[in-house]
Simulated scan of single mutants.
Amino acid sequence: MSVLRSRPVLRWLVPAAAAVTVIGGGAAIGTFAAQAEPSLPPRSAAQLLVDIQTARLEGLSGTVVQRADLGLPPLAGLAAGGNDLLALATGTHTLRVWHSGPDRQRVALVDTLGERNIVRDGRDLWTYDSRTKSATHRTLSDSGEEQVPPSLPATPKEAADAALAAIDPSTEVSVGRSATVAGRDAYELVLKPRDEASLIDQIRVAVDAEEYVPLRFEVFADAADRPAFEVAFTQIDYRRPDADQFRFNPPPGTTVTEQSTGDKPDRDGSGPGRPSADEPGHPGAGDVTSVGEGWTTVVVAELDTDEVPKPEAGDAGPGGVVDAPALIGGLPEVSGDWGKGRLFSTKLVNVLLTDDGRLLAGAVTPERLYQVAKG
């Protein structure tokens, strides 16, 4: 069984780590093509922040490219072949996006093997996978608040909203060079942590100079000159998409699963009506807390020791997916006055799994995790 379906600990490693990276705050496989720097009227960081928050967006459609090279260990790369969330944390991905007000959105992830869609049309929420010819449908409440957003941002705006919401005194905010993104002139907002314990050097947000919509979002690791994670429009159209774009009709031969309002979308392998492994009430679920603030926040999860995979050497399991024991066994052993465990390291995130059943994750140095583990 896939490591991300069978055990809570590995399900934490990349989705949680990616969230810590984006919200808390290696060379990428190429960067978006650089163009001549446009000449724009001066604008302060405070003005740009207000512009972003007050921008009125009636609609848009476009193509988004997401690129990531987080420096994942080799075994994690193998595991990515069996899980969409883990795969999104590596390589290059192309998405088509449509937005028409607060209750109509569509995101399509396109790859060589097929297309996956998330479509919201009013209270109807559909997910569809052309590879498996399967779809799920939910009817949202009037507020739609129970909708679960993707674990990785689908657009620069989603990523920027999360980063800007986390701005506090630990963040230095400035204006960088102007740029051209998707044929649009843009200002660049630069966010830098003041705490040297953070693995993130800076986050850059390119903002449309006329519409004030984020067009590009980049995360740079410490001492790196290329982004470890970036998501950017390569084409954008601010005209409101036609309503037909949001009407989803399952293609012939599609297996449709109806989910009730209380169910979460099937993002981590849990079927309809089944709680995911990190929810209260699930066997092996434990308390999740955070230590610290801002860029150096560390998430701590108390795991049921019976659910923690025992490290074993081994190759990929059925379908090329690495089993949890093999993945854990491939991580380096670490120890100190806090105890013993295994360390999962990327350019932007470190995750410590201790032998006594704790998982600590953050966009911080291993030393910071050891300090928190010691208590």
Score class of each variant (00 low, 15 high):
159 A>R: 15
167 I>P: 00
194 R>I: 00
8 P>Q: 15
227 P>H: 07
354 T>E: 04
268 D>Y: 13
9 V>Y: 07
259 Q>W: 11
240 R>G: 00
302 E>W: 01
145 E>I: 07
139 T>W: 14
76 A>V: 09
68 A>P: 02
28 A>E: 14
8 P>L: 15
263 D>N: 05
101 G>K: 15
78 L>N: 09
280 P>M: 03
272 P>A: 15
291 V>E: 09
207 V>H: 13
39 S>P: 01
150 P>E: 08
281 G>S: 06
32 F>I: 13
276 S>N: 15
364 V>T: 10
314 G>L: 13
94 T>Y: 04
227 P>F: 03
179 A>F: 03
349 V>P: 00
83 N>G: 06
32 F>A: 06
109 L>M: 01
112 T>A: 07
310 K>G: 10
66 Q>V: 05
314 G>R: 15
49 L>W: 12
48 L>K: 04
176 G>Y: 04
85 L>G: 01
15 P>S: 13
147 Q>D: 11
153 P>N: 11
350 N>F: 03
1 M>S: 14
171 T>Q: 02
94 T>W: 01
315 D>Q: 13
364 V>H: 08
102 P>N: 09
318 P>M: 04
152 L>E: 12
315 D>H: 07
21 T>E: 06
40 L>T: 06
160 A>C: 10
120 R>F: 00
81 G>A: 10
249 N>L: 10
181 V>C: 00
326 A>G: 13
267 R>D: 03
349 V>R: 07
47 Q>H: 01
74 P>W: 06
234 T>C: 05
217 F>Y: 15
265 P>M: 13
238 Y>F: 14
361 A>T: 12
81 G>C: 03
30 G>L: 08
161 D>G: 02
19 A>R: 14
324 A>T: 14
137 H>S: 06
50 V>G: 00
257 T>A: 12
325 P>W: 09
149 P>M: 06
266 D>C: 03
174 S>T: 15
162 A>P: 09
32 F>C: 00
350 N>S: 03
36 A>H: 10
282 H>F: 12
175 V>Y: 05
198 S>K: 08
100 S>R: 14
179 A>M: 04
139 T>I: 09
303 L>C: 07
133 K>Q: 07
198 S>C: 06
142 D>A: 14
24 G>Q: 11
252 P>W: 03
132 T>V: 04
319 G>C: 00
162 A>G: 04
196 E>L: 15
